[in-house]
């Protein structure tokens, strides 16, 4: 399947093979992912679509090194994630991947600026550098005038923009976004997608879960997941569009 997706993008940066995740809860086993294999190349913008409970969030968490698979391997930028120590995983979450959550997940009662500086604190970036970078990032997502606002004083769209700035704090090559527009009105959602589009244009690899076909249109490739399996994977803009038109 990976071979079929080979396009004019760079080297593979995410390689998962035979990934599965089973949750056991009081003798009841729930299969969230069943034998998922695919590849993401540097500079791609991949949309992941699928109904609720299809396992796409689970896949996203494993890709973000927030969760571990039951079986299968995940190679990130040449490193086998399954063999890394807890500290090495922390470093990956810190430097290689920026994660954007549906629920923003900002620290409440904490300013936008401080929220963006958190990953840099864990990376021991010097204070002055942190301030400079965080200010620039907030400026870039259009919140230059709100850096001292507490996160809970901001609107949903503004909070998500702070979250994107935070994901960008360590300038990671990969940005994973789990339904970043799910809690937002369409207009705000479009602004957020524009930012992701912009980041992708600058060379960041983006993997994004979305429910909205119009958002998936921004992606260069869409992966459809159902019942823990990849049911369709488009590797070109045209074929994806054809699929969407057929579905709707």
């Amino acid at each position: 399947m990976a071979g079929a997706n080979a396009t004019n993008y760079g080297r593979p940066i995410i390689q998962v093979s035979h990934l599965s995740k089973v949750y056991s809860n009081d003798s009841v086993e729930t299969v969230a992912l069943a034998d998922v294999s695919f590849e993401v190349r540097e500079g791609e913008f991949v949309a992941i679509m699928g109904p609720s409970g299809s396992g796409k969030s689970t896949l996203m968490h494993i890709l973000g090194a927030l969760d571990t698979p039951t079986s299968g391997t995940y190679v990130l930028d040449g490193k086998n994630v399954g063999q890394l120590s807890r500290d090495e995983l922390a470093a990956i979450r810190n430097k290689n991947i920026g994660f954007v959550f549906q629920a923003y997940n900002l620290l409440p009662r904490t300013t936008a600026l401080k929220n963006v500086m958190i990953p840099m604190a864990y990376a021991r970036v010097p204070k002055t550098e942190r301030l400079k970078r965080a200010t620039a990032l907030l400026d870039r997502v259009g919140l230059g005038d709100r850096i001292d606002h507490a996160s809970n004083q901001l609107s949903g769209g503004q909070q998500q923009r702070v979250a994107i700035a935070r994901a960008m704090a360590m300038n990671p090559s990969i940005i994973l976004a789990d339904e970043p527009t799910g809690n937002l009105a369409t207009a705000q959602g479009e602004e957020i997608i524009a930012i992701f589009q912009d980041l992708n244009d600058q060379g960041h690899t983006i993997v994004m879960i979305t429910h909205e076909p119009y958002i998936a249109e921004h992606a260069k490739r869409t992966v459809f997941i159902q019942d823990g399996r990849i049911v369709k994977d488009t590797d070109s803009h045209t074929s994806k569009r054809a699929f969407v038109q057929k579905e709707h």
Binding site: G64, L66, A90, R93, N94, K95, F99, N105, I118, Y122
Partner: peptide, 12 residues
């Protein structure tokens, strides 16, 4: 969880 997802190590 949030801090860990942003790169906090256990000892942090």
């Amino acid at each position: 969880g949030l801090r860990k997802s942003l790169g906090a190590r256990d000892r942090d």
